[in-house]
Design a protein around this nucleic acid. Structure first.
Lengths: 340, 340
DNA sequence: TTGAAAGCGATACCAC
DNA sequence: GTGGTATCGCTTTCAA
């Protein structure tokens, strides 16, 4: 391979000092327009691409940001969030010369260690904190490490910059949709309560119902998984007084729930309306297609990246609220059965 | 944040020169056991973590490898391969101090540019070449750039190190399974023909049939997508002489195919047996559950990472064949309909 | 075996 | 407006 083109080559080629080349290429003042053009031409001609290695040592930035996916790699397969989220991050950072370092961490215990190593080795300039838990241990960790971080879907009191997408309007619209169809018996299939967004979704469901004078029905944990949805269906459909409208905290558990309800001989939505949350593509492939609330992982990723790069540059940040998730009515919800 | 601990601190603490510290910490010879231990103790005590920045500048390695996902971020959501693949990569490189840089590239035209920039900026030490195409333009690109690379699922003549998983045994077992059930009319729903693995799977199907004296039936392109599977079903089921056994090049198109077949009033597997390829988790959630061929993205990722790091270190590599993908019989395949 | 010093490729400061 | 030069944190000769 040909010898790499360095800043020295550009300097020699254009007959100036490397400091001028650096200034010119980075658009800093202190270079005459004439020399700037000369330098730009030389750089172009030589095909100069600044070495990230050199830049990071000198500039004390690595030009990369980290995302630790704290789950089994297998689960990543089924999680609809990451694809869009990563895409959103990329579309912002890429133009700014940053790259995304992705790590996966099987066990929860190892996560903090991952963050610590990322920070200690100064491998990344900042990290995303997704799937926040209540009293998330990562928060004090990054604070101690002085590692810039942005939270995703945090509660209001969150001490770091964060990006949110309101659950309320979507769930409100869903509840309204179902009440208009005559439903009065609502159940909720939640996510693991340690997750902030599990609680937020359940709370939105609860408040939306009580605001309409409806008493919230049973809540069971669906664990955000297909299997959890199956278990939830077993639990909720065994009782004589079963709900007619079931809202699940994510699409995957809604899929499991519907499959199991059908297995028990219930027609969806004839006997039972079921809705999910997320808006995964598969929802439109199911039978019945899934009524859900469409989130915006791509946009969340984009805004989170923007905040993180601001935080890295030491600029003040303003939390972002992306437009609320919206109701998508498909065919898993319908009129309340008259026999009920 | 406290001042970063550098190699100088460790040297000062243990009363030796930084060069000795470097040697000791990297397990190189030329340090007495006594000083080595002294240095190790000091490093431990100070909590020294070498700066990747410094190491990479001096050592001319970045300690990171790149994966460019050349697709819409949306598609990443539905692709079952990447989760396991990335997990496999991680589990190898992580212990060796490497990190994975993930890039997404929406358009095919931009891909080469991404690789070029990764290489030019020396942001990564090597890259994975996945979803290889026939006459893939990335191959000459990385060769020109002198960028170490490992191909995934390449054909035999591939000029770079590569990891393969044989399609033949799995498809062979699937064909045997179906012939034992009495099927003689086989169709194939392929992937886009530009992909090497599309061709490999079709070829395996074709050869497996002819080896049994069965004439391969129609082949249509399912594009590896759900929608493609729908279109394929429309195409294949319109004819009077329709196949009774349909093998799809991936699970997603099999899902679309089955849904559309059902939509047309066919019972699967009563009227029609359908099988997929990949072994995605969702396959076991469908109705009927999906007979498929289980691939090993995790293992492929692991081996690919191993090869790539060898290549980066300039060591000779030997191509790897991970154990062949295996048939998983579920409920979308059954006896040939007697009326046919 | 140990230590001093020269890079690696940029940035940034400071004379000129 | 310029061009030296110290500097970042480490690896790697090369003397001592």
């Amino acid at each position: 391979m040909a010898h790499r083109v360095t800043i020295n080559d550009v300097a020699a080629r254009s007959g100036v000092a490397i400091s001028s080349v650096s200034s010119a290429l980075n658009g800093r003042p202190g270079v005459s327009e004439a020399t700037r053009e000369k330098i730009l031409a030389a750089a172009e001609e030589l095909g100069f691409v600044p070495s990230v290695r050199g830049r990071s040592l000198a500039g004390k930035k690595t030009f990369s940001v980290g995302l630790v996916v704290h789950r089994d790699p297998d689960v990543l397969e089924l999680d609809p969030f990451f694809g869009g989220f990563i895409g959103g991050i990329e579309s912002y950072i890429d133009e700014r010369g940053f790259a995304l370092v992705l790590q996966t961490s099987p066990g929860a215990s190892e996560i903090l260690e991952r963050y610590r190593r990322l920070a200690a080795g100064r491998r990344v300039d900042g990290v995303f904190l997704n799937e926040l838990e209540v009293d998330d241990a990562r928060v004090p960790t990054v604070q101690d490490l002085g590692l810039p971080a942005v939270g995703i879907g945090a509660d209001d009191a969150f001490p770091l910059p964060s990006v949110r997408q309101d659950h309320r309007p979507g769930i409100d619209a869903l509840v309204e949709h179902l009440t208009e169809l005559g439903h009065t018996h609502f159940a909720f299939v939640g996510g693991p309560p340690r997750f902030v967004h599990s609680r937020q979704r359940e709370l939105a469901w609860r408040e939306s119902l009580t605001a309409r004078g409806i008493t919230p029905g049973p809540v069971v944990d669906g664990g955000f998984t297909y299997e959890g949805g199956i278990a939830a269906a077993n639990a909720l459909l065994a009782n004589r007084t079963r709900p007619t409208a079931v809202i699940c905290a994510n699409d995957l558990s809604a899929m499991g729930f519907i499959a199991q309800a059908q297995h028990h001989g219930f027609d969806v939505p004839g006997d039972l309306s079921v809705a999910g949350y997320d808006g995964i593509q598969l929802g439109s492939y199911l039978r019945p297609t899934l009524t859900t609330i469409q989130t915006s992982p791509n946009q969340i990723g984009f805004e989170a990246a923007r905040l993180l790069l601001q935080a890295i540059d030491g600029e003040p940040t303003v939390d972002v609220n992306v437009p609320a998730a919206e109701l998508v009515i498909r065919h898993s919800t319908g009129p309340v059965p008259s026999s009920n």
